[in-house]
């Protein structure tokens, strides 16, 4: 594997202004209308995956975080924006180019019960990944190597098992081994632990971190659990209703959140230190309500209808990413942080 020798921190995959709109089927009475309705699933998303780093993408369900992963894996064509692999703009649609792309960028799905074929053995799944990506010379050694990497040892015990004979955590490890079979540079992990039992989640996360260090991988970790993002990721990006609202170093984002939505998310996360006596049922001013419809997203900042500190400007002007404090790389798309001189 020559690729692992690449310097850490090298940019592998970049999304620039990535946008995805899903068209909504028109009803009969709308058939002559000019405008086409669409679900604005992802709007203007920028992110950079570097070797040896984990970037977490945090958001509620429906915020567009999985769509970002699928766009980056080129499973959906994008509406606008650009995906750059090592600085080269790529748009692939099936066939050989897609395979070449997939050899470098692999995806791990949420549900290991659905992502492995129940009628095939583990050996079949891994062999296929190795053969398709042309890494199958010396097959047996390669299979052993893959299973050892994901700590399924001894490999002989697992090779001829069927998925139903394995537990959820073991299945997810097989899915990770399959992704590694392509010898990728970037892994896109879409909620890789949310379907697993609580006691084995950390095992899988620690495995991913270990792989990142040993194979110098770039990992995109998609999650709704902001505490696990703090634990696992170097950088954290927060998405709301299809847009990025805040980003920066994981520790900074979770300890000193800037955007009102991130604050709401962190306040809502279960916190054992806050005991039952301290719950104040009357605290209603923190942005209750629900995420907006993405067919007609709110104008301006998409969080403004729920935001406790919304200003008149928020409903009209789309906030731009603004630097927060003096921490380099910490930004939030919120007008609260707009300094007067920039505004003028």
């Amino acid at each position: 594997m020559t690729s692992t020798k690449a310097p850490s921190g090298e940019v592998v995959l970049e999304a620039v202004g990535l946008t995805k709109h899903f068209p909504v089927r028109r009803r009969l009475r709308q058939i002559f209308r000019k405008e086409h309705e669409a679900v604005h699933a992802v709007d203007d998303v920028n992110l950079t995956l570097r070797r040896g780093q984990v970037v977490a993408l945090v958001g509620e369900s429906g915020s567009g975080k999985s769509t970002v992963a699928r766009l980056l894996a080129q499973l959906y064509p994008r509406t606008d924006g650009d995906i750059r692999l090592h600085g080269v703009s790529t748009r692939v649609k099936g066939g050989r180019p897609f395979r070449e792309y997939a050899a470098r960028v692999q995806m791990i799905f949420q549900d290991p019960f659905a992502s492995l074929n129940p009628v095939h053995t583990i050996r079949y799944h891994l062999t296929r990944a190795l053969k398709i990506h042309g890494n199958a010379e010396n097959l047996d050694a390669a299979l052993h190597d893959l299973l050892t990497r994901v700590s399924l040892t001894p490999p002989e015990r697992y090779l001829d098992k069927f998925p139903h004979e394995l537990s959820g955590g073991q299945r997810q490890r097989v899915a990770i081994a399959r992704a590694l079979g392509a010898r990728p540079e970037a892994l896109l992990a879409d909620e890789p632990v949310s379907m697993l039992d609580v006691s084995i989640r950390l095992g899988v996360l620690n495995l991913l971190r270990d792989l990142k260090e040993r194979l110098n991988l770039a990992i995109l970790y998609i999650t709704h659990d902001i505490a696990s993002a703090r634990y696992f990721a170097d950088q954290t990006l927060v998405m709301y209703a299809g847009r990025m609202v805040e980003g920066g170093d994981s520790e900074t984002v979770t300890q000193t959140p800037a955007h009102p939505y991130t604050k709401l998310l962190i306040d809502s996360a279960p916190d054992p230190d806050r005991l039952i006596a301290d719950i104040d049922p009357l605290e209603e001013d923190r942005g209750n309500g629900e995420p907006p419809s993405l067919i007609r997203p709110p104008s301006g900042c998409r969080f403004h209808p729920r935001c406790p500190s919304a200003m008149p400007r928020c409903s009209t002007d789309l906030p731009v990413p603004l630097q927060i404090g003096d921490t380099p790389g910490h930004w939030a798309a919120c007008w609260l942080y707009d300094s007067p001189e920039v505004a003028s």
Partner: peptide
């Protein structure tokens, strides 16, 4: 993983249910 307080290495529980 804790959201507040010091960040520490966590191990979970080995094996499976």
């Amino acid at each position: 993983p804790a959201l507040r307080g010091p960040k520490r290495e966590l191990a979970g529980i080995p094996g499976s249910p």
